[in-house]
């Protein structure tokens, strides 16, 4: 029991990290990680929606007809997103202001629909809740990393507190959208390096692409 929960968390945080391995939910991650606190709020909001939608999709999995399941999932998800949005506007108005349009856009975050389709629709409620927590934790940790790097070097602060002192000249590009692309690219590269086997490029594919390269003079990657 405890072992399976631990395994699910390891999958969510490392092996199948939604942002760094599955490359899901990129839009929101790039936009709101200008500071660690924004990243934390976004991560928590997504985790809350993910846990609730996983629970309800799992509870209703025997009643939702196969043909209209995506529409049903979207209704469930958008309901919870609206609840989270209203709660945040009421209790954390400044955070809701900073997340702005990306708060309602959690609806189209592929992580949530992806977990509903791939996990919650085939599993019992309790493991689905754990899966939501694990994937949410993985997403939050990835966002925090991205936010910490961008805020620390882009503004010289963490949670708004100055770290490097007055003499530090911030690297402005890191807090702009292009910097977000580059930092996320580097983090995904680090993840691929840590995992050793690049998912898009294992040894047989590499050999194939090398032979193709020699034939056509170029390498092609899968998107």
């Amino acid at each position: 029991m405890f072992k399976t929960i631990l395994k699910q968390f390891k999958e969510g945080v490392f092996d199948k990290n939604p942002l760094l391995v599955q490359i899901l939910g990129v839009c929101a991650s790039l936009a709101i990680t200008t500071s660690v606190s924004n990243a934390l709020y976004m991560g928590l909001a997504v985790t809350a929606v993910l846990v609730c939608s996983n629970l309800f999709v799992s509870l209703l999995r025997k009643f939702i007809p196969q043909q209209v399941r995506i529409a049903a999932y979207i209704v469930i998800i958008s309901g919870f997103v609206t609840i989270v949005e209203m709660l945040m506007k009421a209790y954390l108005p400044s955070a809701a202001e900073k997340l702005g349009i990306f708060l309602p856009l959690i609806v189209v975050n592929c992580i949530i629909l992806g977990r509903a389709e791939a996990y919650a629709s085939q599993n019992a409620p309790f493991p689905s809740i754990i899966d939501g927590l694990a994937m949410g934790a993985g997403f939050t940790i990835a966002l925090l990393l991205l936010g910490a790097i961008r805020e620390l070097f882009g503004a010289g602060t963490l949670f708004g507190i100055s770290i490097f002192g007055q003499s530090y000249t911030p690297i402005g590009i890191l807090s702009s959208p292009p910097g977000a692309f580059i930092v996320l690219g580097c983090l995904i590269a680090l993840m691929q390096y840590l995992k050793k086997d690049c998912p898009s490029m294992n040894s047989t594919q590499r050999r194939k692409s090398q032979s193709r390269m020699s034939k056509q003079g170029r390498i092609r990657h899968d998107p």
């Binding site: 490359i23 692309f181 580059i182 996320l184 690219g185 580097c186 995904i188 590269a189 680090l190 691929q192 390096y193 690049c198 998912p199 898009s200 490029m201 990657h221 899968d222």
Partner: peptide, 12 residues
């Protein structure tokens, strides 16, 4: 370089 192949280099 190998770790950068696929998505990372595309993002950068």
């Amino acid at each position: 370089p190998e770790p950068f192949r696929g998505t990372p280099i595309t993002l950068i």
